[in-house]
Design a protein around this nucleic acid. Sequence first.
DNA 1: CTGAAAGCGCTTACAG
DNA 2: CTGAAAGCGCTTACAG
Lengths: 345, 345
Amino acid sequence: MVTMQDVAQRAGVTKQTVSNVVSGRVAVRPSTAARVRAAIDELGYVPNLVARSLATGSTRTVGLFVPTVATAFYADVVEAVEDALEERGYHLLLCTTRLDGERARRHLAGLTSRSVDALLIAGDRDLLDHLPLLANARFPVVLCAWETAVPERFPVVTIDYDYSGYVAGRHLRELGHERVAVLASPTHAVRVEGFRRAFADDGLTIPDSAIHMAPEPTFRGGIAAANTALAADPEATALFATHDVLAVGALEAARDAGRSVPHSLSVVGHDGSPEGLLSRPTLTSVALPKREMARQAIELLLRADATSGPSVISRQLLRPELIVRDSSGPPARIRRSSHGSVHRT
Amino acid sequence: MVTMQDVAQRAGVTKQTVSNVVSGRVAVRPSTAARVRAAIDELGYVPNLVARSLATGSTRTVGLFVPTVATAFYADVVEAVEDALEERGYHLLLCTTRLDGERARRHLAGLTSRSVDALLIAGDRDLLDHLPLLANARFPVVLCAWETAVPERFPVVTIDYDYSGYVAGRHLRELGHERVAVLASPTHAVRVEGFRRAFADDGLTIPDSAIHMAPEPTFRGGIAAANTALAADPEATALFATHDVLAVGALEAARDAGRSVPHSLSVVGHDGSPEGLLSRPTLTSVALPKREMARQAIELLLRADATSGPSVISRQLLRPELIVRDSSGPPARIRRSSHGSVHRT
DNA sequence: CTGAAAGCGCTTACAG
DNA sequence: CTGAAAGCGCTTACAG
């Protein structure tokens, strides 16, 4: 392997001069620099990043923990983080924890040895128990995409999930819906709260009986929850699903139940994921500012690394944005026939 | 930061002894080892991986290039690679190239500085032009998930895409289909060839006019291509889509066209992606052995790294497997009415 | 089984 | 602007 020393010899200078040329930190006489650069090319010299890291104490690598990568949300987060890092010349060390606490712990222990300059943990509640491990970490840690149970000791930049629920509710209220149901995943309580508040603002209460838990966060789970909801309250004119995949399931359930969307039933999702564009009708949803979140988290992380002071425990909340598409509209007027069955106009 | 030296001092030994205890490579007297371990705990010592890497020449990190992570196929590849690495105590440095050659080149240049022990490049044709850069790499390189234009100079472990098309065709032939159409993405020529061969085996020719290119590799693209195909040949009894997302679009198009699946039309996809389980009906598809591919690629890579000899340019082909679900069945008998319109029984 | 030495390839002050 | 020295924290032979 060709080292800086080899280049120096070839160019007739010392390796410090080569270092100065390579780093550009110290001015070098143009003619010398040219000679050095020629030697570098001739020898095919490539600096050894590991040696540099040991000398500087910086690997220019940051670790990212995500529960999985096989989900539109986290896939986007990963790519957004990577982009933010690349702009700054950093590399990405990826760990997917797969909702496996033990696996997470192992990874954490590995990283603690400081092969990274900083660590970003995205929405991984399974890590919570092992977070104390991070107290000994030699690098700053920031949390992002955290919805519930946000640990106190770390800075976090996340999305205002309460507001995302609220904005969905607001939309349905503005359309004129009064009687609605919610399809939720167990971990999405905050979204549901926000959604209810939008109705409460207008003096409307969404009873607990109108909140239906999806058996699983999948298309099928959405169908099942929607079937339950539609059966429990045939007069509900709109469904809010806390997750787009549930909403797409709801669309399917509505079709099976002969409820046309949005004419006889409005459906609003959450996440603004691509599948909402593919569904029929296309899905009104709350888009999450993932890129912005990634950027701010990385910025926080890298600033903390630079100052290497204990990072200020700050809390940044980003506002999601409603995307109105074809699955939501004003409620149909409802009239009751004498024998109690429901017709929509 | 507490170093090995600090631990040594505390335990009253030299740092080599500490090193021996930590690495476990050299036997240490139990009582001494205990003392060292106690010191490690008291001081909260964590070894510095960077220093170790410089000394050993190994970072225990491997780089992975993928076009994106926002696709079921590559998301699975990434997680499979990560699993294979974790078993061996390696970390994963991830680079998504986003079909951006320039971006890929930058990453490549960065990695060439050897912050990784090995590099796995998954199906990224955009890298092709920059591959010569890798000639100077200080680590072995292996290609995987490569479908076309496989470079000669690198080992590759990939899927037998010709066979995957073949197996889809075989399935349709066994069901009795004779007249079929293909929905394809431009980069899937190999799959199409294999598919055609299954028919050719029985003396049946699939004309070029029955191959329909999807305008984009999406749900909408699938709908569009299926519409074209169905209009071009209403008598086709089956559709093979080279990509599940196209197949799911075809399902939608079939529904719109009043063709019931599989009764009046069979649809076979490719990739065995999760969406095939969510569609209605569920999708018959060709499952790709991604985990096995990842495992073998990593094994090849790490072996090459260990021997550090020039890796043998081998070519490993893995066999995909047909998953029969509800979207395929025998063709309906077709009878023509006197005025030429088509009825199915 | 334990200790003294050299070295991994770079960078960072510090003289000249 | 360029060179000599020390050091980053570990590991790897090599003596004792």
